[in-house]
Each structure stands twice: as C-alpha cells, then as structure tokens.
C-alpha cells in the first residue's frame, strides 16, 4: 500500500513539475528575522566598544587610525549570534538579510565604520570617538558639574586621575601613586 502511494507521488511530481527555487537565477529572500551579516548604522554608532566586549569570537575590533577610530567587523570570524545587536546602547547594529558572503580572499569580507576620534589631550592615547563624548556630556549635563568638566572629559583615565589628584591636593606633584585599573576599551593597531 505504501509502495502504491509512493508510485502515485512520483507520477504526481512528474505532472506538476519541479518545486525547486532556481537560485541564483531567481531571488530567494530569507525570512524577516534572519540573522545575516550585522550592519552598522554610521549615524548612530559611537564606537563605545560594547559590541567588542560582548562578541564571543572577537570578530569585532576597534581600530586606532590616528584622527579616526574605526569599528571593524570581520565576517570570516562572525558566528551571527546577534549579541552585538542586543547590547548596543544606541541600537546601531542590525542583523541584515545578507547571506551570500562567499569570497576568494577571506580578509576582504569586512565592514568598517569610522568616525572622528577623541584623543587624550596630554598623552595622546585614544579614548573613544567624538560622538561618544558628546553623548556622555549630553546625558550628564543635568547634574551639577565642575566648571572644568569639559577638560576632564577629554583626558584618558591615567591623565584624568593625575589631574584630579593635582586639583585635590592643591599642589603639583610629579607622580600620583594610584592603583591603575586596566580598562581595555580599545586596541591599538
């Protein structure tokens, strides 16, 4: 009986024609919630580094390019888990519907978004991007701030600590014995 059903199914397939999607001659779009290549909105991204810290494979890297800071996603290492989408505070990352990423050279499947950088005014180390600084100032400006906050915001943690110690103690000291907590926000390239 099952053999008869199989035979009838075969004849039905012969009559009705194939069921194939003729990709690549026909488009074959994925469903709406498909996790394709993560794309960054350049207007919203602030290079804060949240996606970098949460990426399980470290496919995202923050690059120091002198006057600019870039957020670079290497699709060769990405596992399309969408963690970066979840933790981005500005909702700048969206998983697009792009799935055809095949390539001859694996280093070239990247997406880079760059923006002006904010460097420390004393030692020149990269802190973060200009926009992140603006956003931080925007969020804390309702609090009572000291008048030199704008200067403090443009210093790296070590220099900021030294300046603050100087102001507190009221004298100019060469070294401030401090417990330096390493904050790995960015990677030097």
């Amino acid at each position: 009986m099952t053999k008869l059903k199989a035979v009838l199914e075969g004849f039905r397939a012969l009559i009705k024609g194939p069921f194939t999607v003729r990709y690549p001659f026909e488009p074959s779009p994925p469903p709406e919630t498909f996790r394709g290549a993560p794309k960054r909105d350049i207007e919203k991204c602030t290079a804060c580094g949240a996606c970098y810290q949460n990426c399980p494979t470290k496919a995202i890297s923050i690059l120091d390019l002198g006057k600019e800071v870039a957020v670079d996603v290497w699709y060769g290492k990405c596992i399309f888990c969408a963690r970066c989408t979840e933790v981005c505070p500005e909702e700048a990352v969206k998983m697009s519907l792009t799935y055809d990423l095949s390539t001859y050279n694996k280093e070239e499947v990247r997406e880079s978004v760059s923006m002006p950088a904010q460097r420390c005014q004393i030692c020149g180390k990269l802190i973060t991007s200009d926009r992140q600084v603006d956003k931080v100032i925007d969020r804390v400006k309702i609090l009572p701030l000291p008048l030199n906050y704008h200067m403090m915001v443009s210093l790296c943690p070590e220099c900021k600590r030294k300046q603050q110690a100087t102001l507190l103690l009221g004298l100019r000291v060469e070294r401030v014995p401090a417990i330096t907590i390493p904050v790995a926000v960015s990677e030097k390239k």
């Binding site: 055809d100 095949s102 001859y104 050279n105």
Partner: peptide
C-alpha cells in the same frame, strides 16, 4: 588554510544553502 590551500571561503554559521550555491558558483568562475 593553514593545512591545505583554499580557493573559496563561504562564511556563515551555518551558511544558507543558497550561500553554498553562490560559493560553488564562484569556485566555478575561478
């Protein structure tokens, strides 16, 4: 590619069957 020379890479975790077809077509173009 640390073991044998590779011609085409198909990233994806896992890549869709359409992406695999796309990759094979690129290999044929090579």
């Amino acid at each position: 590619d640390k073991v044998i020379p590779v011609d085409v890479y198909i990233p994806g975790c896992p890549p869709r069957p359409q992406a695999i077809i796309d990759g094979i077509v690129k290999a044929l173009a090579k």
